[in-house]
Design a protein around this nucleic acid. Structure first.
Length: 948
DNA sequence: AAGGTCACG
DNA sequence: GACGTACGTGACCTTG
């Protein structure tokens, strides 16, 4: 651990106002209102929990306002004069804030004649001068003046908004005010503050104030320049407002040299004694926190069996999955939680590392505070080297870290230093279940885990799509253990609970934590023993080794990179959307004659089809009216004015909730970027999927949606480069179905839809090209006459005629469909050009709908799956190829099925572009030689939108 | 938790 | 003649 001191100064007064407005009006058992106090208590709790984090506090104090008045009232008697009195039920909570602070045994500072802001400023500067970093826990804009970078011998000062969980550094201040922190006071002096009744200059708001300071460099310079400005309202206001500005400047200036009532050293944090806190929590009825307090400090001892009622029988043969999934069960003893060792000393740890080195194969699993690999802090590591030979190494247990009683643990830095050579050792294979997660967690501690195997990815290579009725088809550990080992894993929720009562893994007592974590490692080890040999036997080695395994660390790195988004731009869009939605909403209510919930399909259906009497039938088993886009467009064509308004409302609601609001919330406070999580086993065809947030469905098809893409931006000095495969699935279809005309058209670089139109209709017009495009896609998806008819707006028999003609002109297609289905019926799975299997257990279903659905999916899977294989190979080769070309600063950020997005210095574009295009175009080689070229199109720009 | 809707390739 | 209406995803909202 570094010796760097980090002081947290909590702006208690401002916090309590915000907590009051945000929380329900709770009362304690005596009837005293305590909602804001509760919010305040949970905030302190969270801060204390961060104690051991790199950015967490070593010192902490709470700063409060003494009373309403300060030296500023002597300067300007109207200061804070128009502030309304605090709400009645907040008043009795003020003294409780002091009680709460004392209950945490934290210092609480207040001083007559000074505002909390002044004390905070003075303490922050004093601490920074002696080299400490400082975090001010507040979102008060006045305090943003203090934010500063550290320098030689001087610590940094930043802010933390605990409600938004956002760190405020210089970039955030610049984003808010348009000027760096040292000029914030000048901006504030010009614009004033109605809440504090700082006058500012009449008629100058934040926009103008920022512009003036940006243009002239300071308040004084702006005021001095007024004289020489051309006559304008602004000039008059500046000249008249000179004095008001001067007073305002003094009012917004923080006193940075106040005497410190208590020396900094006394703010040192070393554990929170439980007793006063417990008494406080009990008194006010904060039972959930009380439970966490009790649970948190459990003293670890030897491991015991977690839950005797759930004793498993892993040694015995268990129910197996579908046919072909059957495995001889190795003669292993049943999984025994009592056999696990909890590693609490360096000697024990060294012994385990030696065992792993000797075994050359070790299953590894990490436990974290939250389920987020990019920010979830490491809590412990478990290892397994054989059946019954597993351990758990707790690294950050002891419940919330503020409590003095922590279990004996090898210090995290010591343990990681010992584990690093093992985890990075080329000669030792590290096995994980979804090891991408562990790679990311450990990467944050400077450990590059390699080489690796992943039981989840192996399972996917073997059994994608294989789930059947009653037999799960997933690749999660609990499910795999059930399916292959006949073992019921300890459920995470049995260890940590769920919902409101969920606790962090760090708070789990060591005996239970060891049983759970070591079991995960052992189950992973056993699964690997069973599944890995199947790859060679069942033909999964090729896709696993050539496509999926190399991809794991690559995708992990992309997740860690994240992408920058422009929070302010999204916020502006959210606001625009909200305004427009409100307007459209009232128009809709007007037409409907009464307000209703537009977002409820049920209510909307009733309004449209009963109240307003439009035609449009029921549909679906639920008997509900359908109100989807197609239906509404139909109504609009009938001349229903409400339909287009509902469509607009829906679009805005979608964009706002799913994108502009959600993406702001997804910005990681530590990195300032958005980090998606990719699933390598999410799509049956082998595609990746993206979650939390999904960055594979960012709008692009409409003008208004594209505004959101503009908010995905490059860092200063960099650009985004987007590289797309052009028509890759159609190219693959042409190759796989061996369609000469299509292959030739691609070879000549023709417009493929136009070529299709010429082939089918003899001439290319806008209409025939559009129809051809629809048919081309229909082919990829498994065609039906009704589906095509619906899309083209023609009768089914006409659609059938077009399909017949398509098959006649492109005979290979029909043959491809027939042989693919034949093979899937016979073998049960389809295959990509790289040997990826997708299983179709319902391909022979007696249920026609089900069977036909499987058939369409089976036609599509080899094409979609081969495309996925190819881009995955390109991804795995990309960064090494760029490095070989001397390009070390190109970062690969996103994958969207046929597109890769990079961030790179502007100056590297010319060199990087041909490398990226070549790697993508040649990604199938040498394993597969395609008859068609793979076209790649690239674009660059400062935003993702521009890069298209 | 399920159903409806809609964003993407 | 009825069935349900193209492949693959994930997120959000309302309702039960």
């Amino acid at each position: 651990m570094s010796a760097k001191q980090h002081l947290y100064l909590v702006d208690g007064s401002s916090y309590i106002f915000r907590a009051y407005h945000r929380l329900p009006p709770l009362t304690n058992p005596e009837g005293t209102p305590v909602g804001a106090v509760y919010g305040y208590t949970t905030m302190l709790w969270k801060l204390a929990e961060d104690l051991d984090k790199a950015t967490g506090p070593t010192h902490l104090a709470v700063i409060l306002d003494k009373d309403g008045t300060s030296f500023r009232n002597e300067i300007y008697d109207q200061y804070k004069a128009n502030r309304p009195p605090p709400p009645e039920d907040l008043v009795p909570q003020f003294p409780l804030i002091r009680d709460a602070t004392r209950a945490f045994s934290l210092p609480c500072i207040e001083e007559q004649g000074l505002e909390a802001d002044d004390l905070i400023a003075s303490y922050a500067r004093a601490a920074a001068r002696q080299g400490w970093d400082v975090t001010i826990v507040s979102s008060d804009k006045d305090l943003m003046q203090l934010v500063s970078e550290g320098s030689e011998g001087v610590g940094s000062i930043d802010m933390l908004d605990t409600m938004k969980n956002q760190r405020i550094g210089i970039p955030e201040v610049v984003e808010k005010f348009g000027v760096p922190p040292e000029l914030v006071g000048d901006v504030l002096a010009l614009m004033g503050d109605s809440v504090d009744n700082v006058p500012g200059i009449f008629g100058i708001g934040p926009k103008t104030a920022t512009k003036l300071i940006q243009d002239y460099g300071s308040l004084d310079a702006a005021l001095d320049a007024a004289e020489g400005m051309k006559p304008s309202k602004l000039r008059d206001r500046l000249l008249e407002g000179r004095e008001a500005a001067a007073i305002s400047r003094v009012l917004v200036t923080l006193k940075e040299d106040a005497p410190l009532p208590q020396p900094l050293d006394e703010f040192k944090l070393d554990g929170v004694p439980k007793e006063p806190l417990a008494a406080f929590l009990e008194k006010h009825g904060f039972t959930s926190l009380l439970r966490r307090l009790d649970a948190g400090a459990g003293s670890p001892s030897r491991t015991t069996d977690l839950n005797p009622a759930k004793q498993d029988t892993a040694g015995a043969p268990a129910a197996q999955g579908s046919e072909g999934n059957r495995q001889p069960m190795p003669e292993w003893p049943a999984i025994d939680h009592a056999a696990y060792e909890c590693v609490q000393s360096a000697e024990q740890l060294d012994a385990w590392i030696a065992r792993a080195l000797a075994a050359r194969v070790v299953a590894v699993d990490t436990e974290t505070r939250t389920l987020d690999a990019v920010t979830g802090d490491l809590v412990g590591v478990s290892l397994c080297v054989g059946p019954g030979e597993a351990c758990y190494i707790p690294l950050a247990h002891g419940g919330t870290d503020m409590f003095a009683e922590k279990p004996a643990m090898v210090p995290m830095d010591v343990a990681l230093a010992a584990l690093k050579p093992l985890l990075e050792n080329d000669a030792v294979l590290k096995i994980g279940q979804n090891i991408k997660y562990d790679i990311n967690v450990l990467a944050r501690h400077g450990i590059t885990v390699a080489p690796i195997d992943d039981t989840m990815v192996i399972s996917f290579a073997l059994d994608a799509g294989r789930g059947e009725e009653g037999i799960g088809g997933g690749h999660g550990m609990d499910e795999l253990a059930r399916r292959h080992l006949g073992h019921e894993c300890i459920a995470f929720k049995d260890v940590c609970g769920t919902g409101q009562k969920q606790i962090s893994f760090a708070e789990v007592p060591l005996d239970r934590a060891t049983a759970y974590a070591a079991e995960d490692a052992e189950v992973t080890w056993r699964l690997w023993k069973l599944l890995k040999p199947r790859l060679a036997i069942e033909g999964g080695t090729r896709v696993y080794e050539q496509v999926d395994r190399p991809l794991v660390p690559v995708v992990a790195a992309m997740e860690r990179e994240g992408i920058k988004v422009d929070r302010a731009a999204l916020a502006r869009l959210s606001e625009q959307f909200a305004t427009r939605m409100a307007a459209v909403e009232s128009e809709i209510h007007e037409i409907a004659g009464a307000p209703f919930t537009i977002g409820s399909p049920k209510q909307l259906g009733e309004v449209l089809f009963e109240k307003l009497g439009y035609k449009g039938g029921r549909k679906g088993k639920s008997g509900q009216y359908s109100t989807d886009q197609a239906v509404l467009e139909g109504l609009a064509a009938q001349g229903a004015p409400i339909a287009n308004k509902v469509l607009e409302y829906r679009q805005l609601a979608k964009l706002k909730s799913t994108y502009t609001d959600a993406l702001q919330a997804a910005i990681n406070p530590l990195t300032g970027r958005v980090h998606t999580s990719y699933s390598l086993v999410g799509a049956q065809t082998g595609r990746l999927s993206s979650t939390d947030p999904n960055l594979q469905n960012i709008p692009i098809r409409t003008e208004i949606g594209r505004e959101i893409r503009k908010a995905f931006v490059a860092e200063d000095g960099c650009v985004l480069l987007a590289a797309d495969y052009s028509q890759i699935e159609l190219r693959l279809a042409a190759h796989m179905a061996d369609v000469d005309t299509l292959k030739q058209a691609f070879a000549k670089g023709e417009d493929i839809h136009a070529a299709t139109a010429r082939e089918m209709y003899g001439e290319v017009t806008r209409d025939t090209r559009a129809a051809a495009k629809t048919i081309n896609f229909a082919i990829l998806y498994g065609i039906s006459r009704w589906g095509l008819a619906g899309r083209l707006g023609v009768e089914a028999d006409e659609a059938q005629a077009m399909i017949d003609r398509y098959f006649q002109r492109f005979p290979g297609i029909q043959r491809y469909i027939a042989t693919t289905l034949e093979s899937v019926r016979e073998r049960g799975y389809s295959e990509t050009l790289f040997g990826r299997k997708t299983w179709f257990p319902r391909i022979a279903s007696a249920n026609q709908t089900e069977r036909q659905g499987s058939e369409r999916a089976a036609i599509n899977a080899p094409i979609q799956g081969t495309s996925a294989d190819i881009i995955k190979r390109a991804m795995a080769r990309m960064l090494p190829a760029l490095r070989d070309a001397g390009l070390k600063d190109v970062r690969m950020l996103l994958q969207v099925h046929d597109e890769l997005v990079f961030e790179l210095p502007q100056g590297d574009v010319a060199a990087a572009k041909p490398v990226i295009e070549r790697v993508m175009a040649e990604a199938a080689l040498p394993s597969v030689k395609l008859d068609v070229p793979l076209g790649v199109e690239t674009g660059t720009g400062t935003s993702w939108d521009e890069a298209h």
